[in-house]
Design a protein around this nucleic acid. Structure first.
Lengths: 297, 297
DNA sequence: CTCCTTTTTGTAGTTAAAATACATTTTTCT
DNA sequence: AGAAAAATGTATTTTAACTACAAAAAGGAG
C-alpha cells in the first residue's frame, strides 16, 4: 500500500483553496461536488461517499473522480485533508472580507486566516537558522531589538520578554536612537532586527553599524531581502502572501510566535539559574492588583 | 513544567489530550493502542483499522473498543478528530517544553500550542459583545487605547492600526499619562482597555474616570473580572489557561487577533470614505525603502 | 489451590462503504 | 447529421469497518 506517499499529504496547502482553484478546470458534475464542498464543508466532512453523492446530486464514482481530480487518492484521503483544513478555519477564499459580513463571519474568517498562515509559517521556518539564533542569544552579554512600525511592536514585545530570563536588553523606538544604540554595540552583544519587508533603509543601516562594531546581528524578516546581506543569522518568517489592506497583522503575529520560540529556548537554557529571580518579579506584579485569581498580565 | 495545566481545560477539544487523560482508565490492550497513537499519531492517521491493529499488536475490535472508550462512535470518527487535532499542532501533552527539546521540537510545540489556543479563543468569543464594540468604535469621534505590560503592546498595536481607517486615536504608556488622557475624554470618545487579568488597579481607575467623563468604555480581558463592572462592553478573550512563565504570549496574540477583527470591521464600514487616504499613506511608506518588492512593513 | 464467575480479548462472520469496470448518455467536431 | 470523444451513471467487485460470539485471562469464594 502507498502509505508512504499519503503521509506527504500534510505538507499540502489548504484543500478548500485547492478546490476553489481547481474549480474552472473541473467537469460539470465534478463542479457540482466542488460547489457543495465549498458551500458546506462541514456537512461533507460528516458524510459518507453515498451521502456526499446524494447531496451533490451526482453518482458515487463522480465524487471519487472529483477527489482524484483535485489530487487526492480517493474519498478517504480527501476527507482527512478536509478535516485538517477545517481545523485551521475557513480558507483564504472565504477570507476575503466583505462589507456584508456578519460579526460571526468576520471572526471566523480572520481567525481562520491567521491560523492557516501560522500553519504555513510553521512549515516554512528554517529550523537551523533558528538554532543558530538561539545559540547567539543564549551567549549574549546584552541584546538590542530593532524595528519600525509594525515590526517595532514586535521589538517591544521581545524586549519585554527577554529580561525575564536574565538577559539585559533594550529596544529603541526612533531611528536616531536606534542608530546611536547600534553604534555603541560591540563584541558579545547581539542585535535583533525585525523588518517584514527587509527593505527599510534605517534597519539596514542599523545592521551595518552594529556589525561594524563587532556585534552579532540576527534578522527576522518576511522575505529574502537586502537586509539579510548584513546579518549573521537570517530567520525568514514567511506568511501567506496577500497584498490586501489587512495583511500586516499576520506577519506580526507570526513574528511574535518566533520571538516566543527564541525566548522560550533561551529561557530553558538559563532556567535553573534565573528561576528564582523570575518568581520574585511575579510576586511584585501581584501586588499591583486587587484581590482575585492570580495570573500574569 | 510549562504547559502542564492545559490538560484539565482542554477536555473535549484535542483528541490526543483526551487519549492521554483516558490512559489510566483503559484496559491493558486498549492502552497499547493509546500509546501507539500518542507515540506517532501521524502514522495512525494514515493507517486503516487493520494496520492500526497490527501496529499496536492487538486485534481490530480492540482498536474499535478503544475508540468507543475515548468517546468516539467508531474508528472513522476517531480518525477525523485526530486529523483535526493534528492540524492544530502537537498536543498539550507534547507541548511541555523540556530542556532536551531540539529546535524543531520547540517550533512544533509552540506553534501547535498557539494554534490550539487560538482555536479555543475563536470558539469562546462573544460575537454579540464584539458587534457592540464595533458599533461603538465605528461611531467614535476619537479612540484611546490603554494597557500595561503585555497588554500595553496590544494597545500600541491597536493604536497603530486604527488611524489607517481614519479614526484618530492614541495610546499612552505610563499610568499617569493614562489617567490624564482618560480624564479628558468625553461623550463621543471611546476608551478601549486591554487587561488580561482585569485586576490591574490602574486600568480599573482609567475605566472609572473615562466613564465618568461620558466616554464609552470597552474592555478586552481574559476573564470575568472587576474591570468589567466599569465598562459598557466587555470582550472576553479566553485562552487556554496556564499560570506558567510562557503564558502571556498566547493571550497577547489572541488579543491581537481580536484587535484585527475590530479594526477590519470598523475599516470596512469606513472603507469607501477613506480608501484613497490609505493608499496615499502606503505610498509614503514605500519611499522609505530601497528598491525591491513592495510590501507593508 | 481449584473451580466458578466476571472481565477482557481475539476469531470469524456480517454489513456497509469505497473503488473499479463497463455501459450509456451527452457533447463536440467534421 | 452522424461518428468520435468525453463525461457520467449503473452494476459489480473489493476492501474496510463493525458485530456477535467464543476463548482466554483475571479475580474471588469456598
Amino acid at each position: 500500500m502507498a502509505y508512504e506517499e499519503i503521509s506527504s499529504r500534510n505538507t499540502g496547502q489548504n484543500i478548500l483553496e485547492i478546490v476553489r482553484q481547481a474549480l474552472p478546470g473541473l467537469r460539470k458534475s465534478e463542479r457540482k461536488v466542488a460547489n457543495r464542498v465549498l458551500e458546506d464543508p462541514n456537512r461533507i466532512l460528516n458524510a459518507a461517499l453515498a451521502e456526499a453523492a446524494a447531496l451533490s446530486d451526482v453518482s458515487e464514482p463522480t465524487v471519487i473522480r472529483f477527489c482524484v481530480a483535485i489530487g487526492c487518492s480517493g474519498y478517504q484521503e480527501f476527507k482527512l485533508r478536509l478535516a485538517h483544513s477545517l481545523a485551521l478555519g475557513t480558507t483564504a477564499t472565504h477570507s476575503v472580507l466583505s462589507k456584508n459580513d456578519s460579526t460571526a463571519e468576520l471572526v471566523e474568517k480572520i481567525f481562520g486566516y491567521t491560523m492557516t498562515s501560522l500553519d504555513w509559517a510553521r512549515s516554512h521556518l528554517d529550523t537551523q537558522a533558528l538554532g543558530e539564533a538561539i545559540a547567539l542569544l543564549s551567549g549574549a552579554r546584552s541584546i538590542e531589538f530593532f524595528g519600525l512600525g509594525a515590526s517595532g511592536i514586535v521589538a517591544l514585545d521581545a524586549q519585554q520578554k527577554f529580561p525575564l530570563f536574565g538577559v539585559p536588553c533594550g529596544a529603541q523606538a526612533d531611528t536616531h536612537q536606534q542608530l546611536m544604540t547600534a553604534s555603541m554595540m560591540q563584541a558579545g552583544d547581539v542585535a535583533v532586527i525585525f523588518s517584514n519587508t527587509g527593505h527599510t533603509i534605517a534597519m539596514i543601516e542599523v545592521a551595518k553599524v552594529a556589525k561594524d562594531g563587532g556585534a552579532k546581528v540576527i534578522a527576522v524578516s518576511g522575505s529574502r531581502s537586502p537586509l539579510l546581506d548584513h546579518c549573521d543569522v537570517a530567520i525568514l518568517v514567511e506568511t501567506l502572501d496577500n497584498t490586501d489592506i489587512y495583511t500586516p497583522t499576520i506577519s506580526r503575529i507570526a513574528a511574535l510566535v518566533v520571538v516566543d520560540i527564541l525566548c522560550s529556548a533561551v529561557g530553558l537554557r538559563r532556567d535553573a539559574e534565573h528561576g528564582q529571580r523570575f518568581e520574585n518579579m511575579k510576586q511584585l506584579l501581584r501586588n499591583q492588583r486587587v484581590n482575585g485569581p492570580v495570573k500574569t498580565s
